[in-house]
């Protein structure tokens, strides 16, 4: 009965997985908290602003007088 051994093995693994899932993932929680806090307090400095392109909206300032 080979199947018996397999079932026994699975029966051993199954509760282990459930147990692991119960632990609180502290590192993931910190990461998630940081992300939310940065959004709420709008702390992301130098990420979007550094990418700010030189606006081409000012071209009429050259005033082609001719």
């Amino acid at each position: 009965m080979k199947n018996w051994k397999i079932i026994l093995l699975l029966a051993a693994i199954f509760p282990a997985c459930v147990t692991i899932n119960i632990y609180f993932p502290a590192a993931a929680a910190e990461k998630a908290a940081d992300k939310i806090i940065e959004e709420v307090w709008q702390l992301k400095d130098g990420q979007d602003s550094s990418k700010e392109p030189v606006a081409p909206t000012e071209t009429p300032a050259e005033t082609p007088a001719k």
């Binding site: 199954f14 997985c17 459930v18 692991i20 899932n21 993932p25 993931a28 929680a29 990461k31 998630a32 992300k35 939310i36």
Partner: peptide, 14 residues
């Protein structure tokens, strides 16, 4: 259950 656990370990759903 394994898939569930892997997903939970990687990141928190927010």
């Amino acid at each position: 259950f394994v898939a569930n656990w892997v997903a939970a370990a990687a990141d928190l759903e927010v």
